[in-house]
Amino acid sequence: MPTPSQATPLDELLRDHGVRRVVVTGSATEYCVDSTSRSALSCSCDLVLVADVRARAR
């Protein structure tokens, strides 16, 4: 399964705009948030994972 930076021009856009920090939020931590976070780290970006915004099973 491709990561967000492989399946989209995300990596190129971040580099072209000089983005150094990525803030990640989301509701599907099992895949989407996890893969986006790993992708941001592989692009040498600083990562901020907003844990309080994630959905939780009750």
Rank of each mutant, 00 (worst) to 15 (best):
R21D: 12
L41W: 06
D52H: 07
L10E: 01
D16I: 00
Q6T: 04
S5C: 05
T25C: 10
Y31R: 10
A28M: 14
G26M: 06
L14R: 01
L49H: 01
A28D: 11
T3W: 10
L49Q: 03
S5L: 04
L14T: 13
V50C: 04
R56T: 08
G18D: 14
D34E: 15
P4F: 14
D52V: 05
P9Y: 08
V19K: 03
D34R: 15
P4K: 10
T3L: 10
C45D: 01
E12I: 10
Y31F: 15
T3Y: 10
S37C: 11
L49N: 06
V19H: 02
R15G: 04
V19Q: 03
L47A: 04
A57N: 03
L13D: 02
E30H: 04
S39D: 12
V53T: 10
R56K: 09
V19F: 04
R54L: 15
V48W: 07
A28F: 09
C32G: 14
G26F: 00
S39A: 11
M1G: 14
R58N: 12
L41V: 08
S37F: 05
T29C: 15
H17F: 12
D52Q: 02
T25F: 01
D34N: 12
G26S: 07
C32T: 11
A40Y: 06
T3I: 07
L10V: 06
R15T: 08
S37W: 03
H17V: 11
E12R: 02
P4G: 11
T8W: 13
L13Y: 03
S42I: 11
V22M: 14
Q6A: 09
L13G: 02
D52G: 03
M1T: 05
T8F: 14
S35I: 00
R20I: 09
A57H: 07
P2T: 05
L13Q: 03
S39E: 09
A40L: 07
V23Q: 11
A55N: 14
P4V: 15
S37L: 06
E30P: 10
V48S: 03
V24T: 04
S27L: 09
T8E: 14
V24Y: 01
S44L: 13
R15S: 06
E30D: 11
V50F: 00
D16P: 00
R38L: 12
A28Y: 05
E12S: 04
S44E: 15
V24W: 00
S5D: 07
Q6W: 08
H17S: 11
E30V: 08
A57D: 07
A28P: 15
L13M: 08
S42Y: 15
R21T: 15
L49V: 14
L41T: 06
Y31V: 03
V53L: 08
L47K: 02
R58E: 08
L13P: 02
E30L: 11
S44T: 15
V48L: 12
